[in-house]
Nucleic acid binder design. Structure first.
Length: 641
RNA sequence: GCCUGCAUAGCUCAGUAGGUAGAGCAACUGACUUGUAAUCAGUAGGUCGUUGGUUCGAUUCCGACUGCAGGCUCCA
């Protein structure tokens, strides 16, 4: 009979212990310090509690708060602790689920009233008290019927429903936080002293099982970290994000505004509109070089078109419609594709014409739920840098590859190196046969593989007419934003009976690719504002040069300098009022103007130009043209060499 | 759309335990003619988001509505 187990430590050393030894016992034997920081363990690659007995030979790694797994466990245990505190303060509350999320955790709770920020403070204070008592968290593997009776007697009806979802489990892990009991797969911390660096962040509603048809629960969010330092730096990151908020900067930098008369719609001020136009110019050049043509289709078209395209059935709840005096119903376009299809359909197409890469900066209108709106990031009317590529089936792979190449290169030029790709496959609400979906999904996967790119699968998230790739970029402070998409589609061309004359003289149906690279110009500008914290690169800056004088006698020379810069298409503003130069510099710095020109007696007399960079360094040019050449060079768009 | 919170001058905010409001910046006027992140003084500016109710009296208390913020759902 084998009463010993061989345990392999991470350094390869093999030690022998009695059967049933626990990770905590092993850690204790290795050293008191390790034992003290033991959160859990990885035994044969599986995460287990520090108290779980080991029955067979195994490799082991002790998990401490220094490990990413350790921090996750801390967050998970914080959720339980939240339950402990909530049940003490609000005994009739019913706990639902308390998972770990990025940077923290939440717990969904059913309670007769909503929690307020004051409740949150009370709960957090109670959690801190409980942490300070350093109580042990005790795990008991418990037979199913006993678990049911425990939660039944405690009126934890949601826990009972969750148990019903696990018909095959004969035993559950129960974690005892003193009088509070939670059910969990675990593992969890052995003692609350690990949970010190947490704070509750917000309350909100959340639907039971995530379905808006179900009752609404209260969700309490928190964040937790291994050390005080990490907690503090996370809270600082949130502050930094608040400072970069594009809604705040949009106001401060005079880029755009929103108002009640047109909710979810942007009023672009001339400075913001300049950024918008610059981005479109950039995209036009890139698309032209990539073999695209640009068209423009109507914003409002007969409802019949949208019925035929399937939008009315699949997307109708997001569409705006309008009745006219002649009893026609028209719809504002929520997407550009049907218009593009009309454009293709006009006139005969030959296989020699394909691929046709047809771009359109189309403004689309989508009725979004009011609660979904968010600054420029989520609006009801926005401009897509859309394009539809019509090609033969055998050209599909190459066209997909080209698009992926283009989008990654553009993001890179604009300063985003960290791009994630998501593949969204057939949704429940869709059109077209499974055979077609097989071909389309394979095309996207093949093109990603041809480029050796990693991607994450999002099953069931595709558009109703085809699967899609989504390009997610990571900004300067580590947040992810979804921008571009690429969708492949054989359904719309079929519905609209699009065709081309092939080599053999027969008519064939083209494949249609839908792609947007910025996605929404509005959202992309929001992302750029936050990524650069309002300090646009010079080529995008609404004002590239501020010309300012030391005092009024030099205004005339300042205007002369300004005219020369203006002729060179450099965007400039004058700041030649009676304020002191220090004040002018402060204002222009706060406006994040990349270059300032200071003009006083010295410059006026010698026809010089002194350039001040936003960073504070200065360069003096002995003639205006040299300064213009220098600034022009710095204001070049990244695709222009 | 749902949950919670918020709404005071152009902006950022204070305030009124119910008696029609105040600061800083910005604007305007005047003085100063100024060299690298705020010169000084003065003037003007608000039906306290809208709308009902309670009250002798509501910006303040209560309700409804609208918008905004954070979530949920959805999504470019």
């Amino acid at each position: 009979m084998n009463e010993q187990v061989n345990i392999t430590l991470p350094d390869g050393v093999i030690k022998t212990y009695p059967v049933g030894v626990t990770p905590m016992e092993i850690a204790t034997e290795i050293g008191a310090g390790l034992a003290k920081s033991t959160v859990a363990a990885r035994v044969n690659e599986k995460l287990v509690d520090a108290c779980d007995p080991i029955q067979t030979d195994a490799s082991i790694k002790i998990i401490t708060p220094r490990d990413a797994d350790g921090v996750e466990i801390i967050r998970h245990s914080c959720a339980h602790l939240l339950g402990h505190a909530v049940k003490q303060l609000y005994p009739t509350a019913q706990m639902v689920i308390g998972p770990v999320i990025e940077n923290g955790f939440y717990y969904d709770i059913a309670y007769e009233r909503s929690f307020t920020p004051e409740d949150l403070e009370l709960i957090e204070a109670r959690m801190k008290e409980l942490i300070a008592t350093h109580y042990d968290v005790i795990k008991r593997r418990t037979p199913r019927d006993e678990v049911v009776s425990i939660f039944g007697s405690r009126n934890e009806n949601y826990k009972l429903k969750l148990i019903e979802d696990m018909p095959n489990e004969t035993h559950m892990g129960l974690y005892y936080h003193e009088e509070y009991i939670d059910m969990c797969r675990g593992p969890h911390v052995p003692n609350t002293r690990f949970l010190e660096h947490m704070t509750l962040t917000k309350v909100s509603g959340a639907y039971w099982r995530g379905d808006s048809k179900n009752e609404q629960l209260q969700r309490i969010y928190g964040t937790a970290w291994a050390t005080k330092k990490e907690l503090r730096s996370h809270l600082r990151m949130l502050e930094e994000a608040a400072k970069r908020d594009h809604r705040k900067l949009g106001k401060e930098l005079d880029l755009f505004h929103f108002r009640e008369e047109a909710i979810g719609a942007v009023f672009w001020h001339h400075k913001g509109w300049k950024v918008f136009q610059e981005l479109i110019s950039y995209m036009r050049r890139r698309q032209h070089n990539a073999g695209y043509i640009e068209v423009n289709t109507p914003d409002i078209m007969d409802l019949g078109l949208w019925e035929k395209s399937g939008h009315w059935e699949n997307y109708g709840e997001n569409m705006y419609t309008s009745e006219t005096a002649d009893d026609k119903t028209l719809a504002l376009k929520p997407m550009n594709c049907p218009g593009s299809v009309m454009m293709y359909d006009h006139g005969l197409k030959s296989y020699r014409d394909l691929p046709i890469r047809m771009a359109e900066f189309g403004k689309v209108h989508r009725y979004e739920l009011s609660g979904a709106l968010h600054g420029l990031m989520r609006v009801r009317h926005f401009t897509q840098d859309d394009a539809h590529i019509y090609c033969k089936e055998e050209q599909m792979l190459e066209e997909c590859t080209k698009i992926i190449h283009l989008v990654l290169d553009i993001y890179k030029q604009l300063g985003f190196d960290d791009i994630a790709i998501k593949l969204s496959t057939r949704p429940e609400k869709r059109m077209g046969s499974d055979g077609i979906w097989d071909i389309l999904e394979a095309a996207l996967i093949d093109s990603l593989e041809a480029l050796e790119l990693d991607y994450k699968l999002n099953p069931g998230e595709g558009a109703f007419y085809g699967p899609k790739l989504e390009f997610v970029l990571r900004d300067a402070i580590g947040r992810d934003w979804q921008c571009g998409t690429l969708q492949v589609d054989m359904n719309l061309p079929k519905r609209f009976e699009l065709d081309y004359v092939d080599e053999d003289g027969n008519k064939k149906t083209p494949v249609m690719l839908h792609r947007a690279l910025f996605g929404s110009l509005e959202r992309f500008i929001g992302i750029l504002i936050e990524h650069h914290a309002g300090k646009f690169p010079a080529w995008l800056a609404p004002v590239q040069v501020a010309i300012m004088t030391i005092s009024e006698p030099f205004n005339e020379y300042a205007l002369e300098v300004g005219k020369s810069f203006d002729r060179a298409n450099i965007r400039l503003e004058y700041d030649i009022g009676r304020e002191k130069i220090g004040y002018k510099i402060r204002c222009q710095t706060l406006q994040k103007v990349p270059f300032m020109i200071v003009i006083g007696a010295q410059e006026a007399e010698k026809s010089q130009v002194t350039l001040r960079h936003i960073t504070g360094e200065q360069t003096t040019f002995t003639n205006i043209q040299d300064a213009i050449d220098y600034v022009s060079d710095k204001c070049k768009a990244p695709d222009i060499v």
